[in-house]
Amino acid sequence: MDTAVVVILSALTSIAILLLTSLGLAVVFGLMRIVNMAHGEFLMIGAFATTTLVRSGAMPLWMAVLSAAAFCALIGVVVEVAFIRPLHGRRLIDTLLATFGLSLVMYQIAVDIFGTASPGIDAPPGWLQLGRYSVSYYSLALPFIAVVVTLLLYLLFKSTRYGLLARAAAQDAEMASALGVEVRRVNLYTFVLGCALAGLGGALLSPVVAVSPGVGQSYIGQAFMTVVTGGPAFLLGTLSASALLGGVANVISQFSTNMWGLTGLLLVAAVLVRVLPRGLSGNWSRQL
């Protein structure tokens, strides 16, 4: 009994991590058709910002997490204005390569500032005893945070003016601009939102992983797969893809080995691309 509960809890944590590390990519890709190759570096910046703030004693973890997201949003503004906006209307590949160039630069700057072995921070203390098992509170909190973030995003896109405009712009940029939507401003908001989400993801991970300049790169592969298998409904599609891929990987790891868990994740993703080339949400009528 306690085993079943712990397996489910552990799977939920894995799903939450996958979701939190993919959402930023999904928003930018879903609404702007931009593959942000610097996504991993935004995760990394979020994580470093958090550890730095917490270690300096300036603020508690939760406040540092929010500040880290805000900091990433700020960098997002600069990046959008300097590199994304001028490429508007060019091929997808151009923004992809530009953001990759950016990721190299950001990585190296992080190496120069933090070195390759930078001190980390503790996770909030405490654990829950479930029969033979103990589960840390923090890993229990992650799924809740993921759900709250998803809900907030849903509300944002469903019921704010920005949300409506962003979705309209994604549907047809020309028509939206003819209707008077300021596509430029909406795109800026969307990109910045994506960066903030990436920063938030990295910030939330910072107490449970070893934060290093390369930390983002280990998540980007799986984030890509989640976004692809999620399909056009960038919010709920990504949520279901995270649930499927993260769940499969975790549960297989529980009963077999990590290697098979990873292999299972990849297999499921491959099969999905063949069966549903437009992703899990390819045939849904909703677009969120």
Partner: peptide, 20 residues
């Protein structure tokens, strides 16, 4: 005994198995 691929950083499953 458990072998962990080099790109794994989510150890939830491993920690559960250790407790078992």
């Amino acid at each position: 005994v458990e072998f962990i691929p080099l790109d794994v950083s989510d150890f939830g499953a491993t920690i559960r198995k250790i407790q078992t």
